[in-house]
Design a protein around this nucleic acid. Structure first.
Ligand SMILES: [Mn+2]
Ligand SMILES: [Mn+2]
Ligand SMILES: [Zn+2]
Ligand SMILES: [Zn+2]
Lengths: 142, 142
DNA sequence: TTTATAATTGTAACAATTACAGAAATGGAA
DNA sequence: TTCCATTTCTGTAATTGTTACAATTATAAA
């Protein structure tokens, strides 16, 4: 209710006309910070917005990315994931359970010499491996 | 000539039967460290191997990745890129000229707390922006 | 040479994404 | 209100990167 009100103002402030679909999709993104795919967003919102088209999900996300209120996570090469948290932070993907975890890192002391005169606009750190929970499950089974 | 000989031995050592196609594709990867796409590899090798199939390029790259002599670079969400340098190193993509630059970074001082008990297998650092050359071109035009 | 196995090829299938044209909604001006 | 222009949304078709699969070809041992 009030959340929607906030979203409406927020979208307006960044120059996006707050249509019902756009508000619902943005609301979904901030309530589900688990880096959803287009498919997940569409599947979950369809019951509540029966007329929703997958094209609208694609168009809306592209608009959000253009206006820089959403970032694309390409940690897997199969399909894109979306994140309403546009701050620079890292992503860990567990190859066992598939879950994607956020983590923060210090990009100031990366000490990168080769590109020090380059103009940096986006920094993405992707780490793959096995999360603590899956590690413990593995231990038990051995 | 001799290069091919080395590649033949190298592939054999990592457990890959060195067919002509596989040797040529691996040779292409180490001679073109510009992180080619499947399309680039296929286009460039086709004239020299007229019977080459794009499926063979896909199959061969998957085999190289499985045997860990090649890594997949997913810096763009459109198509996969391949890198015969499997060491942990960063990639910078210039959004003007599209070129992808390698750089080294010290992953030890990233200071990541949230995933310190996780089992890390791969680390990918992708940075996007404008390279020095394109920056200078921009300056001249303003 | 025969025969089994592995590698390659070409086509079809698939899945994610984009293009596009028509329908619906929106927001003034008359 | 009605009319009209513009924007947004929708559904389908097209496109693109990738994978599945069956048939062909190459390889190598018996
Ligand atoms: Mn995130
Ligand atoms: Mn590289
Ligand atoms: Zn896990
Ligand atoms: Zn450049």
């Amino acid at each position: 209710m009030e959340q929607i009100q906030n979203i409406e103002n927020y979208l307006t402030n960044v120059g996006i006309k707050p249509s019902y679909q756009r508000m619902k999709i943005y609301e979904y993104l901030i309530e589900n910070m688990n880096h959803p795919t287009v498919e997940m967003i569409y599947k979950d919102l369809s019951p509540h917005i029966p007329t929703l088209s997958k094209t609208t999900v694609y168009n809306t996300l592209k608009l959000f990315v253009d206006k820089e209120i959403t970032q694309i996570i390409t940690i897997e090469d199969t399909e894109a994931r979306f994140d309403a948290d546009t701050s620079t932070h890292g992503h860990f993907k567990c190859i066992k359970c598939g879950k994607i975890f956020d983590f923060s890192f210090d990009k100031t002391n990366l000490n990168i010499k080769q590109i020090e005169n380059f103009d940096i606009q986006q920094t993405h750190l992707y780490i793959k491996g096995i999360c603590e929970n899956c590690k413990n499950i593995d231990k038990k089974n051995n």
